[in-house]
Structure formats: C-alpha cells, structure tokens
C-alpha cells in the first residue's frame, strides 16, 4: 500500500503584498450595523456567541446566559465593532503611508540611477554648442545638432540619436521630482492624525472589550455583582473615554 505524500497547499495568497496590501479607499471610519444575517456571521467570525447557539440549546434553560447575551449585544458589541472598524481604518492608513514611503524611496533610487545612466556628457555638450551656435551662427548649429560622432548606441542605449540622452535624462528627472512630490505629500498627510498610534489604541481597546465580553458572560470580577449591567456600561464608557484621550 502506498502512502500518498501530502503536499503543502500553496501559500501564495498569504504573501504580504497580496493579502496585507493597503487600499486607497473603501475602508470607513465608522461602523454601521449590517443586516441581521451578516451580523450573526460577524459574531461567529469574531469568536462571539451568536443567537445561533439557541439552535442547539434551549434558551429557557439558560435564562441568565440569554439575558447576558442581550446585555452585551446592546452595550458592548456596538462599541467593540466601532473600535475594530477604526483600528482597521487606521491600520490601513498607516500601511498605506509606509508603502508610499518605501516605494517612493525605491523609485527615487531607481530613477536617480537611470538618470545617471542615460546622461551622456557628449550629447549634452553638443546640445549646448548647438544652442549657443543657434544664436550666433545658424549653419554651425545645424552641424552640432547631429553630434560629433563620439556617441554610439553601445555607449548609450537610450540615446538613439543626438539629444536623446538628455531627453531621457529630463524624463527621469521629472519622474524623480514627481515621486519626491508624492512622497512629500503623503509625509505631510501622515504627520496629521497619528494613524499608527490610533491604530494601536483602537486595537488594544477592542481586545480589551473582547476580554470584558467573556468576563461578563462568566460573571467574573467586576461583573460578579447584581449591578453587572451598570458595571458593563461603565466599562464601555471608560473605553470610549480612553479612545478619545490624546487624540489630536
């Protein structure tokens, strides 16, 4: 009997530039409660207890749990999803800026290298001579434009004809300037709003609320009293206050 070797499934989709690449738009700052079916799926996906559990258990036998789930659904979960949504938003913004910086640095290097590569001093000198001669002696200018024969295709692949090297130099120079401008624009944007800090804060608060969710279900401190709903509401309010602290 042969044993079939189990092949490792392709992980290509897990590469960061496919799975974790930021998007320019499409992520909202605010969370809106979706339709009930989608909401139940979200609860299941996020590891919460959805009302689907009552398909296997009788809610009449677990009135306390059913009541706690309603409390959590009313007071905690909306804030949880609000924070989670904001965390996703700021995470995306942070990575978007970082990607722009990294790619900007790479493209600046690339275009700078290409600018140096296509720059041909002989062609540049010929063009300068032609420009100077055009002012004084138009006949000589026509001769200088075709070059003096020193420039060959092997020496400068981008310079198929005299003057081409400087054209490419200008193009790459413009591209370098464009990349620099875009990077500077995003740098200015990133300095406002502190996306990394807000991402970390919202994610931390989100996970804190997730902990409170299970503590509340288990009636663990501080929810081991009869006023646990009030405690829960205070916890949520405290989290909202924390979220607003030091926000510029």
């Amino acid at each position: 009997m042969s044993v079939k070797v189990q092949k490792k499934p392709s992980q290509f989709r897990n590469l960061f530039f496919i799975r974790r690449r930021p998007v320019l738009r499409g992520i909202s700052t605010d969370w809106e409660r979706p339709d009930e079916a989608t909401y139940q799926q979200m609860l299941e996906w996020d590891g919460f207890v959805s009302p689907k559990i009552w398909e296997q258990h009788d809610p009449a036998k677990h009135p306390v749990i059913a009541q706690d789930m309603r409390d959590l659904d009313q007071h905690l979960l909306p804030t949880f999803y609000q924070f989670s949504q904001r965390a996703k938003y700021y995470q995306n913004r942070y990575y978007l800026y970082q990607w722009v910086f990294i790619l900007g640095a790479f493209l600046t290097t690339l275009f700078g290298t290409l600018t140096t590569y296509v720059y041909n001093p002989f062609t540049a000198a010929a063009e300068q001579s032609a420009a100077a001669a055009a002012v004084t002696q138009p006949d000589i200018a026509a001769t200088a434009e075709v070059g003096d024969g020193d420039v060959t295709l092997e020496d400068a692949p981008f310079t198929a004809q005299a003057g081409g090297g400087n054209t490419w130099t200008r193009i790459f120079g413009y591209l370098t300037a464009l990349v620099g401008a875009v990077t500077a624009f995003f740098t200015a944007l990133s300095n406002r709003g502190e996306p990394q800090k807000r991402w970390a804060k919202n994610r931390r608060l989100t996970e804190e609320l997730r902990m409170q969710y299970f503590k509340y279900l288990a009636h663990l401190p501080p929810y081991d009293t009869n006023e646990r709903v009030q405690k829960l509401r205070e916890t949520v309010i405290d989290a909202r206050i924390k979220e607003q602290e030091n926000v510029s």
Partner: peptide, 14 residues
C-alpha cells in the same frame, strides 16, 4: 436574573 447565579448547566455551556 441579575441576582440569579449560574446553574451547573449554565456553567457547562459557558
């Protein structure tokens, strides 16, 4: 319900 503790069935489910 607030003053009602978890029953053994509740605890098992939780």
């Amino acid at each position: 319900l607030d003053s009602q503790p978890h029953s053994p069935e509740d605890l098992a489910l939780l």
